[in-house]
Design a protein around this nucleic acid. Structure first.
Lengths: 125, 125
DNA sequence: GTCCATTTGTCCGTATGTATA
DNA sequence: GTATACATACGGACAAATGGA
């Protein structure tokens, strides 16, 4: 699979593709994602670009990475928050913390985008 | 200024250094930071490594960047809330909770600032 | 316990694109 | 139109952590 549409930056397309695959269940919670090198081959891009894409998902709280082990879909990922099926409601405090962390990260990203357009002067409409 | 050898990753040191300079008032709120190239020269590292350091501060809400204009210290940044940059141990639930509480407070302040500018456009900075 | 392959994470140098001034 | 500045991308490289032989 190659990234053909050059409308958006490749690393964003990587993030979107993997996010969709996680949402669709292709990569289940707790599962290990293909290695960075494998993903780079699959998409036909450089390793570092894959890392940038994974960074997006990491900030969204969808995945966690560990050197020497790999990158995994968070076992408690809230699939409903990314447009797919429902997630089981769990009562564990750590699960709720993880959800909050994910949501805070997404809010931060949205605020950052707004700041670029509002705080930065002379932004054309 | 050169980064000390064999400490933490260079990009972390860049973030720590600039964060300290912002906290100390060396870079005042609203001020423009040196360009990425200047910072790269100053630290003796590559442009992209500087970008990685700036990314950290951007995620912390300390700075805002705009292509073609530069990188600026947020005009409404709370200098007293700037930490030493040490990441809290993420094992402890209480530590995570405190971190989240702090982050939510900062996000709320940023949203309020945005609301002032968007909803009440007559209010000067 | 010691090697060794895998994997993530980072860095560099260079290049290109895009937005701003 | 030109210069500046950030953002992204590539290929190559190396360190650290992990896990298996």
């Amino acid at each position: 699979m190659t990234l053909v549409q050059d409308e958006r930056p490749p690393y964003v397309q990587v993030a979107d593709t993997l996010r969709a695959e996680i949402a669709s269940g292709e990569h289940q919670p707790g599962a290990k994602l293909p290695s960075v090198k494998k993903l780079a081959e699959r998409f036909g891009i450089a390793d570092m670009t894959v890392q940038s894409g994974l960074r997006v998902l990491r900030e969204e709280g969808l995945i966690v990475s560990s050197a020497g082990r790999g990158t995994f879909v968070r076992s408690d990922v809230d699939l409903s928050a990314i447009g797919a099926g429902a997630a089981p409601a769990e009562d564990d405090v750590r699960v709720q913390l993880a959800h909050l962390t994910s949501q805070v990260g997404q809010l931060a990203a949205r605020i950052e985008e707004l700041e670029r357009r509002v705080i930065a002067p002379s932004v054309p409409d």
